[in-house]
Design a protein around this nucleic acid. Structure first.
Length: 625
DNA sequence: TTTCCTTTGAAGTCG
DNA sequence: CGACTTCAAAGGAAA
């Protein structure tokens, strides 16, 4: 693991990464550039690490891997989020990130993938560690629903205001470091535990005593279950315990990977059986026929559009249907079958950590939770991230094996036909202008957006023929960040190109396309004011924006965040032309969307961050008066 | 009931 | 090839 070695510095710097996210980093520009590079290296190294053993795609993937992206702290509008964020800081930066990483990561997760699917000793260890948990709660397992409901943390679960202090440690009443995972599938679980034998399809054991959820009236455990659904089941209890792989168990209202008759373009390669133990794709997944494995359980990734409808009924009915109808149905199903994309590293991480965050912060909204998770993701050490990258890589591999003919494009097409996100995008674009009205005062309410219709937008300013001069968002038909700068109440003197102020740290790199462009993300992160906490004492003045000079950082930051949101590169207007935008994914869209909603934070944070010194995030979170 | 939000990463499309 | 979009999970909120 050469990368690790080399990157230890960085690694040390998990903090750095996280801090950047938090906007605390205020490294000097020079440092930034190097840091960025490091970050990029780290990322790539993570990938490489995971793929080193792997093969082919590794290289390409590594290259593709975008540098750590900036966080958009656009705002965590939601108070809950803010609060959570506040709490979070405390711990994040005080102690090594994730001192008590709740999940025991198995170093050699790969082992599960070993031929024969047997678990490695390590994995077994893991299992052993987890199983005890089962004992903890006699009732230990509950229906999925119960799990879900359990999520709403009861007071007992809530650690308190400082729950974030030790992100890695949950002080759940039960004291089990493991947080139940509402979503059933532990990313690792599939890799480790999946054993079909134990699994009884479709019979989620309604067990465990449970409280009744006030809201739903559905039984639920008093506390977040000690046992995470995705944790390995002990052999003895397996049958009674809901299968860790959520996808196997029908879930209420969830797209359960339904059994489908068709959908696979290609038969599973026999080779699959070898890896069957891996990931979400159970060995059975190598179905004798299509997606059904021996148990008749479909692959998690396979979903039909009408999930809810499909229950036993649909299956039964289908059975009853005439041959002709069957044929038709099959065709339809084939069309409908939706093989989901394999989860990426972050998604795996989210799955794993979501419950934890929910428990800690008592947040319910996924959007808010995801923001936190995003930050935490950045805060993760390289090693930790590497684990997820590795898992993701394996997931992809397995997915490829299972669905040789599948391509993400399939899902694209499916949605396009159906509807869905496109609308969203279009809508956003179309309405982007309208949103501004919502936030008359950008500083106060989050989206620092003023009326786009205003004349100073890049479009108006430069005209269509000079789109090169447009800021990224404008080019994407999103909100004009430059305009915002100049016009916003928070506005700072617009930098000539709208950049500098805005993107101090990055500028150097941003100016130069190419490699740096991808590395630009970190910067944006740095800009993120939202950092929950400040970095301890050091670098008080480093924050580029803070230092940036005359104008209050706010605008610049806003711009950065707005532009950068997801698109770090975009933040640097001047650089845009150079294609720094490339570094960002969904730059405009996400930003626009995020801005569209009145969420608070971003602006607050900016406004709060006085030009002077860095303020603890806590301040930021509160509304400004 | 459906879509949005929000995150990062992978993979797709488009010019 | 770069820029940009879509989708993956999740579940409350909004439409």
């Amino acid at each position: 693991m050469p990368q690790l070695n080399g990157g230890d510095d960085l690694g040390a710097n998990d903090e750095m990464i996280s801090f950047k996210d938090e906007g605390e980093q205020e490294e000097k520009i020079s440092e930034n550039s190097s840091a960025e590079r490091d970050l990029a290296d780290v990322k790539s190294s993570l990938v490489n690490e995971s793929e080193t053993n792997q093969n082919s795609s590794s290289d390409s993937e590594a290259e593709r891997r975008p540098p750590p992206r900036s966080e958009t702290f656009r705002d965590k509008t939601r108070e809950s989020l803010e609060e959570a964020a506040k709490r979070q800081d405390g711990g994040l930066f005080k102690s090594p990130p994730y001192p008590g990483y709740p999940f025991i990561m198995i170093p050699d997760l790969t082992s599960p993938y070993l031929p024969n699917g047997s678990l490695s000793p390590t994995a077994r260890t893991y299992l052993q560690m987890k199983w005890p948990l089962l004992d903890v709660q006699p009732g230990g397992l509950q229906s999925r629903q119960a799990l879900k409901d359990a999520r709403s943390p009861s007071p007992a679960h809530i650690v308190g205001p400082f729950c974030w202090e030790f992100p890695g440690q949950f002080h759940l009443s039960n004291k089990v470091p493991v947080v139940q995972h509402p979503h059933h599938v532990h990313p690792l679980t599939p890799l480790i535990t999946y054993s079909n034998e134990h699994f009884t399809p479709g019979n989620p054991p309604p067990h465990l005593q449970t409280d009744v959820d006030p809201k739903t009236g559905i039984p639920r455990p008093p506390h977040p279950p000690d046992i995470s659904p995705y944790y390995p089941l002990s052999p003895g209890t397996v049958g009674q315990i809901p299968h860790p792989l959520g996808w196997l168990v029908p879930q209420q209202g969830q797209p359960v990977y339904p059994i489908t008759t068709g959908g696979f373009r290609h038969p599973y390669p026999t080779a699959l059986t070898v890896n069957a133990s891996m990931s979400r794709f159970p060995p059975h997944m190598v179905p004798p026929h299509h997606s059904l494995h021996t148990t008749g359980i479909p692959h998690p990734a396979i979903v039909t559009p009408n999930v809810k409808q499909e229950s036993s009924h649909s299956d039964i009915s289908s059975l009853n249907s005439s041959k002709q109808t069957d044929a038709k149905k099959e065709e339809e199903k084939k069309k409908q079958v939706h093989i989901k994309k394999p989860l990426n590293a972050f998604m795996l991480y989210m799955k794993e950590m979501r419950a934890k965050v929910v428990a800690e912060c008592t947040l319910k909204e996924s959007a808010a939770i995801n923001q936190i998770l995003g930050r935490r993701w950045h805060a993760l050490s390289r090693e930790e991230q590497a684990k997820y990258y590795e898992l993701a890589r394996k997931e992809r591999q397995l997915h490829m094996q299972l669905y040789p003919g599948w391509s993400a494009r399939d899902n694209y097409a499916a949605n396009q036909q159906g509807k869905r996100k496109k609308r969203k995008r279009e809508k956003q674009q179309a309405e982007s202008n309208e949103h501004r009205e919502y936030f008359p005062n950008p500083c106060l309410s989050l989206p620092p957006i003023t009326d786009l219709s205003a004349p100073k937008k890049c479009r108006a300013r430069f005209g269509l023929d000079q789109q090169n001069n447009w800021c990224g968002p404008c080019r994407r038909k999103k909100k004009c960040i430059r305009y915002i700068q100049g016009e916003g109440s928070c506005a700072s003197p617009p930098s000539t190109d709208g950049s500098l102020l805005d993107s101090p740290p990055l500028s150097p790199s941003s100016a130069v396309p190419s490699p740096s462009s991808k590395e630009s993300k970190p910067q944006t992160e740095q800009m993120q004011p939202l950092s929950l906490t400040m970095k301890p004492a050091h670098q008080p003045l480093h924050h580029p924006h803070l230092l940036a000079g005359p104008p209050p950082p706010s605008l610049a930051q806003l711009e950065n965040s707005a532009a950068a949101g997801k698109t770090p590169g975009a933040s640097h207007n001047g650089a845009l032309e150079h294609g720094d935008v490339s570094s960002s994914r969904q730059p405009g869209s996400s930003v626009a969307s995020s801005l569209a909603r009145p969420s608070a934070s971003l602006c607050h944070s900016h406004s709060l961050i006085p030009s002077t010194a860095p303020q603890p995030l806590s301040l930021v979170t509160k509304s400004i008066e």
